[in-house]
């Protein structure tokens, strides 16, 4: 053992790294799942009263980076199956990536009724700030950009754009009225407090599909709860919730 390893060993012993006792499950989930997954977990938790189940939301790209850097997540629900595929390729996932939902993007506003808004309407002078998620690492931001590019608006709308760190952050910018309008996930716009304000779904011909996939990570390879919950997501109880939040679901195998 090299001397610096001895120091590190001592350091970690002194600082203490307590292993969690009992069964536990840590889920990393794309931010568009924030409300839907919370509801599903409310249904799932009573079936496993002894288990400590935690879910962390964020942009799929950031979550992927964290997993690559050793984040202790057992299960990863991405907003874009491309990320789980990458994890699988690099040996950080122990299951084949599989699709659990197809997402949609919508125009939503709290300041005005967005139920009849089209992409062109975003150029109105009265609309000064448009929130989208960061296209670089948030799939919903990337799809919003594709839709705006397809509509020929991308260059002109630049001065109006504000970027959320993930799609829930973008929605929160609109909800707080800091932004006039946002292009957000349908699943968020369906959250009852937000749904009261109306939204319009963007034509999915304008962007690549939001094929959302999940994997069990290497960290969760021995976690039976992770596989159990992944199965639960495919069952009727969970699918009903997902459907209510506007997700299209793959056919059950």
């Amino acid at each position: 053992m090299k001397s610096h390893q001895i120091i590190l060993l001592t350091l970690s012993l002194v600082l203490g790294q307590t292993a969690l006792a009992g069964k536990s499950l840590t889920i990393a989930a794309a931010a568009d799942l924030r409300f839907a997954l919370d509801e599903i977990l409310d249904l799932y938790r009573p079936q496993h009263p002894d288990a400590a189940i935690e879910v962390i939301y964020g942009s799929s790209g950031k979550m992927t980076t964290q997993i690559l850097n050793g984040a202790p997540y057992d299960l990863f629900f991405s907003a874009d199956i491309a990320f789980p595929e990458r994890l699988h390729r690099e040996g950080f996932a122990v299951t084949e990536p599989s699709v659990y939902a197809i997402g949609r993007i919508v125009i939503w506003s709290k300041r005005q009724d967005a139920s009849n808004m089209r992409l062109d309407d975003l150029m109105q002078p009265a609309i000064r700030r448009v929130a989208i998620a960061q296209p670089a690492h948030a799939p919903y931001g990337l799809r919003a950009r594709e839709a705006l590019q397809a509509g020929g608006l991308w260059d002109d709308i630049q001065p109006k754009l504000v970027f959320g760190e993930n799609i829930a952050h973008a929605a929160q910018m609109v909800e707080s009225e800091a932004a006039d309008v946002g292009i957000i996930a349908l699943s968020l716009a369906r959250f009852p407090p937000l749904a009261a304000h109306g939204y319009s779904v963007i034509d999915d011909a304008l962007h690549e599909p939001l094929t959302q996939g999940y994997v069990v990570t290497r960290h969760g390879s021995d976690n039976t709860l992770a596989r159990d919950f992944a199965r639960y997501m495919m069952q009727a109880e969970a699918r009903a919730v997902m459907k209510r939040y506007g997700f299209e679901l793959p056919a059950n195998e």
Binding site: Q5, L8, L9, S12, L15, Q17, G70, A71, P72
Partner: peptide, 22 residues
Amino acid sequence: PRGWIGGSLEAIGLTHLAFTFT
């Protein structure tokens, strides 16, 4: 896990320190 310190910890059978209280 891929860093100098985290990697060394992994090499001696400990866990790396990213995403931990330490």
